[in-house]
Amino acid sequence: MRDLIENSDLLIFDLDGTLYEDTDHFDHYCRLLQQQADKSIQDEFYDAYEKMKKGLHPVAIGKVYDLKLDMALTVDPLTLQVTAAHQWDGTSMEEESLKKEYPGELIYDFERFIAIGDGWWLPYVTAMHYGLTQQNTWDAYNATKFYMVSDEFSLSKTPGLKESLERLKKDKSLVLMTNSEEDDVLRLLKELELDGLFHAIYPSSQKPVKTKDVLSAILEKWNIAPEKAVSIGDNFINEIAPALLMGLNAVYIQPNGYQLQHNNLTVVPTLAHAF
């Protein structure tokens, strides 16, 4: 693992779930959405979310949510082919219907097909299923962001991360590529004491829809071949699969392990194990 990092010229980091691994803010986001749901289903609402986190629900991180059909889709992350679809109660779509409804490569669009790449999306999908609006989710998301800058919330620093980045910065290009807005990024980096350690920051990257475009721009700017770059993140759909398809190396942060085998893929339980 350390040889991969040391032999690379460009390291591209995700932010949420990568440079910090706290998850309390996802629960807070879900509670805010739960309060906006009809009182008769509020318990059911949060119970569904808890089951998702425990892997006891068709919706899970790594799946794709079909907003139109209210279905949880299993998608091969490298071919983007839908291999299974399940209703909220776990009932699976028949093979013939599956091929008819999802005949080719799935295109993530943030409108119908929602890539559930990290913990932010579980409350969102729950809200969509139980009839909340996009405005509800946006208001709750912004309120959660305010919560994250309050005295009630604090981030856990990954042991040794700051020192490792300071050392790597001396002879490697360090880039931060995230879906978070720039003001949030700068605030989080300051709180994590990681501000000033990246040569460039790419906020609002619209991963996974624009992942390949942004990665291509980064490689071009630094004039670095894909095999000399590493994409590091906790979201397989957003930053790992696209990087592998482009020939980059990838470090996937996944505490529960991952079964997919790929020559350019390394799986670690936490970023602390990457250096």
Score class of each variant (00 low, 15 high):
residue 95 E to T: 14
residue 175 V to A: 08
residue 140 A to M: 05
residue 46 Y to L: 11
residue 105 E to H: 06
residue 153 F to S: 10
residue 5 I to V: 15
residue 44 E to D: 12
residue 261 Q to F: 03
residue 45 F to A: 04
residue 198 F to A: 05
residue 218 I to D: 02
residue 200 A to V: 08
residue 83 T to E: 15
residue 57 H to Q: 09
residue 220 E to N: 11
residue 156 S to M: 02
residue 257 G to V: 06
residue 54 K to R: 12
residue 209 V to L: 12
residue 83 T to K: 12
residue 69 L to K: 13
residue 89 D to R: 07
residue 41 I to V: 15
residue 205 S to P: 02
residue 136 N to S: 14
residue 268 V to D: 03
residue 92 S to T: 13
residue 103 P to Q: 13
residue 53 K to T: 11
residue 250 A to N: 06
residue 150 S to W: 00
residue 156 S to I: 02
residue 253 I to S: 04
residue 208 P to W: 08
residue 93 M to D: 03
residue 13 F to Q: 09
residue 5 I to H: 07
residue 56 L to T: 02
residue 130 Y to A: 13
residue 234 D to L: 02
residue 260 L to Y: 14
residue 157 K to A: 11
residue 136 N to G: 10
residue 146 F to E: 13
residue 232 I to C: 07
residue 259 Q to R: 11
residue 160 G to W: 04
residue 275 F to I: 04
residue 125 V to Q: 05
residue 89 D to F: 00
residue 100 K to W: 04
residue 174 L to A: 09
residue 204 S to F: 01
residue 255 P to W: 09
residue 26 F to P: 01
residue 144 T to L: 05
residue 269 P to A: 09
residue 49 Y to V: 06
residue 141 Y to T: 10
residue 28 H to P: 00
residue 134 Q to D: 12
residue 143 A to Q: 15
residue 7 N to R: 15
residue 160 G to K: 13
residue 232 I to M: 05
residue 245 L to M: 13
residue 152 E to W: 08
residue 207 K to A: 08
residue 119 G to Q: 08
residue 101 E to V: 08
residue 79 T to C: 06
residue 271 L to D: 01
residue 3 D to E: 15
residue 177 M to E: 03
residue 70 D to L: 12
residue 274 A to D: 03
residue 58 P to T: 04
residue 21 E to D: 09
residue 262 H to L: 09
residue 275 F to L: 11
residue 36 Q to G: 12
residue 14 D to P: 00
residue 111 E to A: 12
residue 112 R to T: 14
residue 270 T to R: 14
residue 177 M to L: 15
residue 122 L to P: 02
residue 107 I to M: 10
residue 243 A to N: 00
residue 114 I to F: 02
residue 249 N to G: 09
residue 71 M to L: 15
residue 199 H to W: 02
residue 266 T to Y: 13
residue 137 T to A: 15
residue 196 G to H: 10
residue 42 Q to G: 01
residue 135 Q to N: 14
residue 58 P to H: 02
residue 202 Y to V: 00
residue 133 T to S: 15
residue 158 T to E: 08
residue 130 Y to N: 10
residue 205 S to G: 09
residue 170 K to S: 10
residue 227 E to C: 05
residue 184 D to S: 13
residue 150 S to K: 03
residue 236 F to T: 01
residue 11 L to Q: 06
residue 196 G to V: 03
residue 255 P to Q: 09
residue 267 V to Y: 09
residue 114 I to S: 01
residue 220 E to C: 05
residue 55 G to H: 07
residue 18 T to G: 11
residue 78 L to P: 08
residue 200 A to R: 12
residue 89 D to S: 10
residue 17 G to C: 07
residue 108 Y to C: 03
residue 129 H to T: 12
residue 194 L to M: 08
